[in-house]
Design a binder for these strands. Sequence first.
RNA 1: GCCCAAGUGGCGGAACGGUAGACGCAGGGGAUUCAAAAUCCCCCGCCGCAAGGCGUGUGGGUUCGAAUCCCACCUUGGGCACCA
Length: 860
Amino acid sequence: MTEGLQHMSRYSAAEIEAKWQEAWDKAEIFRASRSADKPKYYVLEMFPYPSGRIHMGHVRNYTMGDVIARYKLSTGHNVLHPMGWDAFGMPAENAAMAIGGHPKDWTYSNIADMRAQMKPLGLSIDWSREFATCDPEYYGQQQALFLDMLEKGLVYRKNAVVNWDPVDMTVLANEQVENGRGWRSGALVERRELTQWFFRISDFAEDLLEALDGLDNWPAKVKLMQANWIGRSRGLQFGFSLVDAPDGHDRIEVYTTRPDTLMGASFVGISPDHPLARQLEKDNADLAAFNAECRRMGTSEEELEKAEKKGFDTGLRVRHPFDTAWELPVYIANFILMDYGTGAIFGCPAHDQRDLDFANKYGLPVASTFEPEKPEDGFKRPEDGGAAYVPPKSEKVRYVKGFAGDELQSGEAAVEAAIDFCEANGVGQGVTKYRLRDWGLSRQRYWGCPIPVIHCEACGVVPEAKENLPIRLPDDVTFDQPGNPLDRHPTWRDCTCPACGAPARRETDTMDTFVDSSWYFARFTAPHATTPTDMAEAEYWMNVDQYIGGIEHAILHLLYSRFFARAMQLTGHLPAKAIEPFDALFTQGMVTHEIYQTRDANGRPVYHLPEDVEGGKLIATGETVEIIPSAKMSKSKKNVVDPVTIIRAFGADTARWFVLSDSPPERDVEWTAAGAEAAFRHLARVHRIVTEAAASDAAPNADDEALLREMHKAIHDVTSGVESFGFNAAIARLYAFTNTLSKSQAGGDARREAARALVQLMSPMTPHLSEELWSVLGGEGLVANAAWPQADEAMLVDETVIMPIQINGKRRAEITVPKDMDKSEVEKQALATDAVRKALDGAQPKKVIVVPGRIVNVVV
RNA sequence: GCCCAAGUGGCGGAACGGUAGACGCAGGGGAUUCAAAAUCCCCCGCCGCAAGGCGUGUGGGUUCGAAUCCCACCUUGGGCACCA
């Protein structure tokens, strides 16, 4: 190698990356506008919360989107690839409380920082469409959407419980409740009812469930999680009549999905928030104390379900619907949700473990209604000390106390038969219910989108006039005391009623930040429109062709967005085709890192940044660190690697290549320093190999065809890898092809052709390096704009194949045969191998399976 | 507690129901070098001298053939409606 070539082949990422980012900017190749002559392609990654620093999770997420965007650009698509900021939320207020300053300044300064950290990644983003959800231009349009939804009856007010901190006198998020106490005050948290705004998402439950079927390019697991969340069930709703009914409560309405177990009923349970429970607590101090204790729990379902199951006997009795002489006790139970069903259940201990535990605890009867068709040895009925018998739905059981004797029935048929029987006998109706609850959007916080309504003494709740939008957040607020600054602002709340003109009070609740992220994808199609969307733009760009983000958003964000797409259609802001806004969804895994830990004098763990550790020792002191297995990168564990540091050390292409290479995209990837260095060395090697190929003057020769065959196979494999999110496999294929090119003795022209393909195939992952090498190879224009290489089908198939020969499923030999050899001839050759002859020892094989082109299995 | 996933060499992982371990990292050996770095070449699941045997979280099952399909369990991760 000559001195000159050595110099030429040195890989300087910093130089290359700055140069080509400038070239892309200048050519404006990522600026998206409608065009009739190309198919559109909208690729979107879930937009970031502006915490202040980008992290490797962002790098991974946006690199994956960028690979798709750049690949689609190369295949002749008109690509929309925007970026924005999910900018409202609690952390900005927390920062204002902790360090002073204003949430707005904190947020916009974080956005500026993160944009500056993100740009060096070389993402193919149309930055002209950037917005933050805290821009008044954005949240003003969101207020307009809200008013349209209000007019259509998609929003309403009702009471709902929140976590209340009685010391700070403020509402707490579930995250701010630690072991039942407020995170700042340490006070025991209470549940408190407030009047709040709700979206009628549950009206769409059936549609949101049914439409999942059409989402062919969504992960099955996400669809399943959403289906279970919506939770359609078929059951019976009926009433237990009360013996000695208190005023206004002659019945307790109950919903059950297992009416076939009605004859095993043992008690009736009601929620502590049930109207009957609330009435009883007025004249029963013990009962009131029990209810109060129940309400001291937080509002999360997890907390409720994990808590010890407790009940309180109200002393009331109800009559069994099929035997009025049979009376059941009524308990208040802490595990019954007022939000689901009717807030009341009947307990059947024989067929529900929770009810059985409850019955045992309070000495209530247990009676089986059915038992297994064929009881296994040792089967014990629950009343004889066995566990609750809960058969799978499809399993047939024998009824011992059913509605019509002891017939056999599977669960589902039995439920339908029970509903029919009950309806025929005037006991309740069969109904379909959903677990999905309406979406409470009110937040008693400052840093969110103000809800644009006015409270007037005379007119009640009045929508703000649209011409007054946006209702801007006031800047002159302080965070030196807990609670919502909008509530204590001297003038902001004051307004006049749009209906009667009298002095009135503005709503001080703001919207849940999930509202902001439920329609941003639509706003990107016309980010500067003076209405929420521009129908012509939405008609052209929607739907999002590929949406990419974390699995943690599988339920809430995606379900809310699907609801919003429907609501925006009903209010005329999205076309009918956008009813399901995301055609394809991909959920990527996290970036993890080992955790390095030492102990302080008191034995408490002290965490250390990876950059402060080398060879298992602290660089500063030489102290040995304890290595804790890889976990999600988090500031508290200090197991974070700053993308900015990596880009400075190795370049963006190395960071991009590494986050894509080491794990399947849907799984977690562990960041390792060794892996990053290896990625960099590989890119430098590609730089060297391609530079050499560009200068090669070797004559055409016999090796040319083999190299070009490998090239076409690589084109085929990498293309299908990119299209199916098999980025790690595509990169493994690129390693192999690079090795082939490096070792090939082919002529200069063939090597240059192969090198050009290599550079193009790498270009979605390492766009800067590819751009540089494309120009070294004399490619025309920018590789970003060049047409994607096509694999020649004829070059993909080899003439001969190696077929393994198995004996009883174990590989024992192999034969090399022409690829289309006749089955019987393959069998003949397989039987002639030494291994098979030895195994048969003269006998006939029991069976021979020949899978053409793949394998032969001889059964002896 | 409930819902959803994932478990394969020392490590990350590959593998239309068809040769388990591609590719990469780490490790070992060699070449080059005054030396080192860089680079290049070779080896590398476990046990065994070998023949061979064992191997994809555990235990069953279906199949000519299972990492892959089914059942049960274990462990780890995500979500549980006010974190985003």
